[in-house]
Design a protein around this nucleic acid. Structure first.
Lengths: 202, 202
DNA sequence: CGGTCCCTTGACATTCATCAACGTCGGTGG
DNA sequence: CCACCGACGTTGATGAATGTCAAGGGACCG
């Protein structure tokens, strides 16, 4: 399948694809990071997801992309696959079909996680949940995106993101090594803030 | 496939499946309605989705259900399918595989809609967007769920839902025929609110 | 009746968005 | 090298939106 892919390098801020454009390709981030966003007519922007290395994008849209996608680190390298080709493969190769189905399930799972994040009541809960999502078992990790991106992702103001982070820092729940590097000191406290209930036995 | 299904009738408030229980079955609502919810440690509840007749549930979870599901109207009739059986079918019947894949894509689409709803800034925007989602081409429709359910779905307080609705009613954008029946009078105004605008003054 | 939901409204408290100012960092050109 | 600039991040002050608390009414049911 790899020889049906083409790789491109994108600069920070550069668009990978545009909202409402024909969804002819699937994309896969090889290095760097990107954001998927919707822009509203009044200039507000809603970020619907971040793409990290290994992540797939553009495969679930029907017809046209619902979102646009832009690189957010310098540089970001992306592989592009023809969807027509992929869909042909699905028909002929049940192994590929299974893989694609699995990827769709992954997408559902991530969307559900994101939903429960947005459903949180307070800004502190949202930020804490976001950090836990970004901390993939690793207590120290980098944030490739800006505070503005985080704000638009969580649907709160930039200032509130900043204040929540300094609040967490002052309580020694996290430490910040520079503004884009986070270290979780007290993971339990973070999880308590987000408030997911432990399993109930029957 | 139908003879591998079993139908059950649920009373209002009765659980169809439980959070963290083994996801052994897929479900399909035949009549009535249900809600999918997560309960948080502090007693708050987050509703992640409503299930209306024809809707599918439980097929995307891996291992255990992330949510619990309860009937919200009296009575609610649900068909239950063994997932093991379905997964066997996927292997052997590419037609079923395609159908299931399609259903997964639908699920992604609905989750994305819901996400953009939650991403809205103001409560009025959320409620308006919710009404538009429930009004499926039909300007007059019923709301099977209570105000509390709507509140937990949109992550706002019950009182705010109520106030938003009376606000819309006072501006003659909607009419309420009893508390569970809505008639959209000015769909354009609703869409304008959802799109981007601050509250309209009177 | 008397109880229990469900819905609405009012009064008040709190959170958060907004506006404004300032600091930092990295790049760029004088 | 330094001055300047723009992007980004933080902090403070303030008002508006919304959560919280309280009360009451209506529908349904025993």
């Amino acid at each position: 399948m790899e020889h049906h892919a083409s790789c491109s390098e994108y600069h920070k801020g550069e668009s990978i694809y545009y909202q409402d454009s024909a969804a002819a390709f699937g994309y896969r981030i090889l290095s760097g990071a990107a954001r998927e966003s919707v822009s509203l007519t009044d200039g507000r922007r809603q970020i619907v997801g971040f793409l990290l290395p290994g992540d797939i994008s553009g495969l679930w849209a029907r017809g046209t992309h619902s979102y646009s996608s832009e690189a957010i680190v310098e540089p970001t390298i992306v592989a592009r696959y023809s969807r027509r080709y992929i869909e042909g493969l699905i028909e002929s190769d049940s192994e590929v079909a299974r893989l694609l189905h699995q990827l769709a399930l992954d997408a559902v799972e991530r969307l559900q996680d994101r939903m429960t994040l947005l459903g949180k009541a307070s800004a502190l809960e949202k930020v804490s949940g976001f950090l836990l999502q970004m901390a993939n078992r690793n207590d120290v990790f980098g944030l490739p995106m800006s505070r503005y991106d985080i704000a638009d992702y969580l649907a709160i103001a930039v200032e509130t993101v900043s204040r929540s982070l300094t609040g967490l820092r002052q309580q020694r729940i996290i430490a910040l090594l520079g503004s884009r590097q986070v270290s979780i000191i007290d993971r339990l406290a973070l999880e308590r803030i987000t408030g997911r209930e432990p399993p109930i036995s029957h």
